[in-house]
Amino acid sequence: MSAVLVVAEHDGQTLHAGVARAVSCGLAIEADRLDVAVLGQDCGGVARQAARIEGVTRVLCLDRSENAKPVAAIRAPQLAALAADGYSHVLGPSTTFGKDLMPRVAALLGVPQVSDIMSVEGDRRFKRPIYAGNAVLTVETPAEHIVVGTARLASWPVAGEDGEAAIEQAQTDVELPEHTSWLELKSAETERPDLQSASVVVSGGRALGSGENFSLLYDLADRLGAAVGASRAAVDAGYVSNDMQVGQTGKIIAPDLYFAIGISGAIQHLTGIKDAGVIVAINKDPEAPIFEVADIGLVGDLFAIVPEIQAAVEDS
């Protein structure tokens, strides 16, 4: 009998949008049941959100003060204990949260991890990208061992939200380490949608020339209700913060509409956007590799074109 456990990411109040995508990945395994584990403190609200995801059998709450913050070393032993109790698969989202936590769970269980699952080919067979997306590898996990993996969120749709899963309190009898203290999280204050779940994303590259010039993109994004991203080159140049980075070493995203503005289109960037619905590229170099993957290209000066697009959106 197979059973999938999906680890919920949340900030104490809100369930991360990626959990409903990781659930889709879990459902593709066609297990007998799929449970969601919510580790937190007073996380009933998060549990109720998880219970609404379609396809979820049960939501298991591990409510304790040590779980107030997402410290991998503290959560992993609890998850490993929970997973070892009757689950065939444990999945997390392939976000910084899941990437930090799941290898710890795998190591505690003594099994390898399948990172960035993009498709399920069987209950032990998965596809995942390697070499910055230059290849897709099909792997098989060892028989008789629990499967630990992370779901590449851009590969999975958001599961429906008409579910009515039961919510249960769970307990694990494991010793938790005290060697790690969570001190603070500094978030960029933004009213814009989250980069990983936004339906429209406007990204800028080195051609923006400065952090100040990114205001052009912020203005357009606000007009479009879009999130703002950046290429690694723009991050490396110090124009914007790293949490905006899209690509192999940043975020992998799949918006319906993606604007690549002043981005040449290095393979490392393209790997982060190849599941986008429509890619619009604006670049002054007609030979830029971004035009090889863009659905709609426009060659020219971004400093003239972006305000023109914004005006066109405002007119409508």
Binding site: N134, T138, H145, I279, F291, L298
Partner: peptide, 29 residues
């Protein structure tokens, strides 16, 4: 050696089709 994944096959990623280049913003919009 601990349990390990078995690599079954490697394939190139699905390629996006090259799209169109438009002349101006009105065409794009």
């Amino acid at each position: 050696a601990p349990p390990a994944l078995t690599a079954l096959s490697y394939e190139p990623p699905a390629q996006r089709q090259k799209g169109v280049v438009v002349d101006d913003v009105p065409a794009l919009m």
